[in-house]
């Protein structure tokens, strides 16, 4: 399998096929990121299309093909922040995020379903600066270095922010979790 760096290098040199593979490889991850950032399914879909259009148009600006993942997530983050600035919209805690997903009953049981529901709500309630690092870390499994590149900060700042995000999340979840121990 060709690496991202190979594909990104080929794409920069004009290989559209490489770009199509990168699109297929990243569209879901970017959708997850945008959905968690915005809590709006339609907006997340639009962001993904917009990001790839920009990536295609700005291919010449891809100086480090080996950092394609950070680059594409940085574009997605900027688009999400821009969208949030325009909409100035926050999701109330008593309103479920618009994720167009029905949590199906599974072997994990009702408790796991309840955990999932609570966590979605709690995450949507977090400050955006906390939410973005937590989503990049927990959902995208990115390293501190990659998150630092995406959010244009230092690794130690990322480490600190992830911790604060977890503390804030814990404070929201504590009453529910403590009651079900």
């Amino acid at each position: 399998m060709r690496t991202d760096a190979d594909l990104a290098g080929a794409f920069k040199d004009g290989d559209d096929r490489a770009f199509a593979i990168l699109y297929d490889r990243y569209k879901r991850s970017l959708y997850v990121f945008a959905l968690k950032m915005l809590s709006e399914a339609d907006a997340a879909n639009d962001i993904v299309q917009d990001v790839f259009l920009r990536v295609y148009e700005k291919r010449r600006q891809l100086d480090y093909p080996e950092r394609f993942r950070s680059w594409v997530f940085a574009i997605a983050r900027n688009r999400c922040l821009s969208h949030l600035r325009q909409s100035r919209k926050r999701v109330p805690l008593d309103e479920a995020p618009d994720e167009a997903i029905t949590v199906a009953a599974s072997a994990d049981g009702i408790e796991a379903e309840e955990d999932l529901r609570l966590i979605r709500l709690a995450l949507a309630e977090l400050k955006i600066e906390y939410r973005e690092v937590l989503v990049l870390r927990e959902y995208q499994d990115l390293s501190y270095r990659e998150i630092a590149e995406i959010t244009e900060t230092t690794e130690s700042a990322v480490k600190s922010k992830i911790f604060k995000a977890r503390r804030a999340l814990h404070e929201t979840l504590k009453p529910a979790f403590a009651g079900r121990r």
Binding site: D15, D16, R17, F19, A20, Y23, D24, K27, V48, Q49, F52, L53, Y56
Partner: peptide, 12 residues
């Protein structure tokens, strides 16, 4: 394929 140029769609 997203909102991409025809050449990219074909490549996809």
């Amino acid at each position: 394929h997203g909102p991409l140029p025809v050449s990219v769609r074909a490549a996809g």
